[in-house]
Amino acid sequence: MAVRQRTSLVRLGTLLVAALLCVGLLSGWAAAQSTLERVKQTGVLRVGLEGTYPPFNFVDENNRMAGFDVDISNEIARRLGVRAEFVGTLWASLISGLQTDKFDVIIAQMTITEERKQSVDFTNPYVITGAVLVSRANDNRFSKLEDIAGHRVGVGIGTTFEEVARSVPGADVRTYDSFQEYAQELLTGRLDVIINDQLSVAYAIKEQGLPLKITSDIVNEDVIGIAVKKGNEDFVELLNQILADMIADGTYREIFQKWFDAEPALR
């Protein structure tokens, strides 16, 4: 009996190894059609974003995708001579979605980082903004990044905010899928402080009348670009050209000021 069990265990082990080998081989495979070709051929620019990150991208009362990113996307699509289509995806799944061609670009407040550049290519920045600390309105403990040490800090999973928070030794970093979730946790007292984009926080506090406040200067500058699947230099170049044109002819400023009471950093 013991021998029998051992042989069947060995067999199971062999199966496991075989299965893992298959997985390894299969994931090496790749399909090839350039993003630009596909966009032109289908007449659709598919944009990956969260859809839960106002005012950048969210679903409005009429059940339509809206926000700064959406306006930027529509303008880019217009200039490409195609129509923009939006795919709402969890933040953590955006890059894998781009790599598996679920959409053509990510226009979702994705900061350009060295790590992400390993997986995707970025255009020139289309927003420059910064992360700030946010606490409950009556809490004055947090004025600089080091203050979060020893406190419960909420950030979005896989965001640059998470990186910033983790750079502080002793910070109790907790991750969430969407901004609302950790903002909500801050309001209910399960978090002490959160880190998020200044523009988004200012908008949320104003629109929702949240009893929260921005308590620090910019703790980390976020230079945000459009992400494109690797190996599409022609498309990146074209997008860069379009962005430059939008900034030059004032369209970009117009869109920016529709959503934010400020001068855009990109001029």
């Binding site: 859809g51 679903v59 009362e61 709402g88």
Partner: peptide, 14 residues
Amino acid sequence: LRQSNVIIARTWKP
């Protein structure tokens, strides 16, 4: 569920 999350993102009323 996704629709709920989308509405919560706008309304802040989970």
